[in-house]
């Protein structure tokens, strides 16, 4: 299992470096974010496009940019792109290609006592990310306009800790002139970001579980995606190791394609009987006229 974890961390880190490798942006001096053609494309995970090194766009930011435009358009391109990814792999992106997910995982590795959020709080709180998606990413940017007819990217502007950590703080550190423009909003967002960072030390991926609108979007497609978790009842010995291993609070036996599963495959590697696996489409059920071997306990 350690090998699979290392591979996943490597993939996450490699992807994070690759998609934020605009070296010029990281040089001290006047802010110089990448302005080339790659910014037409959205990276599949959460990654602020104001990050000095970002080569691609943030899909959540891009969605809001289209929604809150003067002409109030629906974001067919970004929604269609994200839906395509979701339909192919579900929340696999969360587990393997999200830089902010990696940051939270690395923070969780800090040796401290870990907290388990009581189920009475955890269960309803998991729906908060859908509120973030529906209200702060879609409804408010799409419908709200200021007196001047301008829309606002509500999630990015008032909530997203990813933008603060990857965009705001690096830009302020790299360029002293930006520090003069700091406002209450920066302090508010820093406070939110700190809450996220500190809670990540004690709780596994709290942003992914409770807040991330992109995770919420991909979760909508988890049960219908091409890539699916398969559970073989015949191999399972009910040891419970898979549920114990899962840090997202999923029981793969009861709900192998749970909306909360980030498809990190830790349960797959933890299972001593290989009862869990990933495959294409739903598990094929035996047809009635097929001969099914029966194990006799003699």
């Amino acid at each position: 299992m350690k090998k699979s974890n290392s591979l996943r961390t490597l993939v996450q880190a490699g992807w994070g470096i690759l998609t934020n490798s605009y070296v010029q942006g990281w040089m001290p001096g006047p802010p110089a974010i990448y302005q080339g053609p790659l910014k037409r494309f959205c990276v599949p995970g959460m990654n602020c496009y104001s990050c000095p090194g970002a080569l691609g766009s943030c899909p959540i930011g891009a969605m809001q940019a289209v929604f809150n435009g003067r002409r109030r358009k629906f974001a067919f391109y970004v929604v269609g792109y994200l839906a395509t990814i979701g339909l192919l792999v579900g929340r696999f992106i969360c587990g393997w290609l999200c830089l902010f997910g990696l940051i939270q995982e690395l923070l969780y590795k800090i040796p401290t006592p870990k907290l388990t959020v009581p189920e009475k709080i955890d269960r309803p709180l998991r729906y908060l990310k859908y509120v973030m998606l529906g209200v702060f990413v879609f409804a408010l940017p799409f419908f709200y306009r200021t007196n001047l007819g301008m829309g606002e990217p509500f999630f990015c502007q008032y909530i997203c800790p990813v933008g603060t950590l990857e965009g705001g703080i690096p830009l302020v550190l790299l360029d002293a002139t930006m520090r003069g423009a700091l406002s209450w909003l920066f302090r508010w967002k820093c406070a939110l970001m700190l809450v996220c960072v500190i809670s990540s030390i004690f709780i596994y991926r709290p942003f992914c579980k409770y807040v991330c609108p992109l995770g919420a979007f991909y979760a909508l497609f988890q049960k219908v995606s091409v890539m699916r978790m398969r559970f073989d009842q015949d191999k399972c010995v009910s040891c419970g190791l898979c549920a114990k291993t899962c840090k997202m609070g999923v029981n793969p036996v009861l709900n192998p394609n749970s909306a909360e599963c980030i498809r990190c495959s830790e349960c797959v590697h933890a299972c001593p009987k290989q009862a869990l696996s990933f495959g294409v489409g739903p598990k094929k059920e035996a047809k009635p006229d097929e001969v099914v071997p029966v194990r006799l306990n003699v």
């Binding site: 802010p31 974010i33 990448y34 302005q35 080339g36 053609p37 910014k39 037409r40 959205c42 602020c48 496009y49 104001s50 691609g56 766009s57 943030c58 930011g61 891009a62 940019a65 289209v66 435009g69 358009k73 391109y77 970004v78 606002e152 990217p153 990015c156 502007q157 997203c160 933008g163 603060t164 965009g167 705001g168 830009l171 302020v172 930006m178 423009a181 700091l182 406002s183 909003l185 920066f186 302090r187 508010w188 967002k189 820093c190």
Partner: peptide, 17 residues
């Protein structure tokens, strides 16, 4: 729209201004 937005520093997004 995405390109225009993503190639300018979003002051709102990073909490400046």
């Amino acid at each position: 729209i995405v390109l225009k937005k993503a190639t300018a520093i979003c002051m709102q997004c990073i909490g400046l201004g």
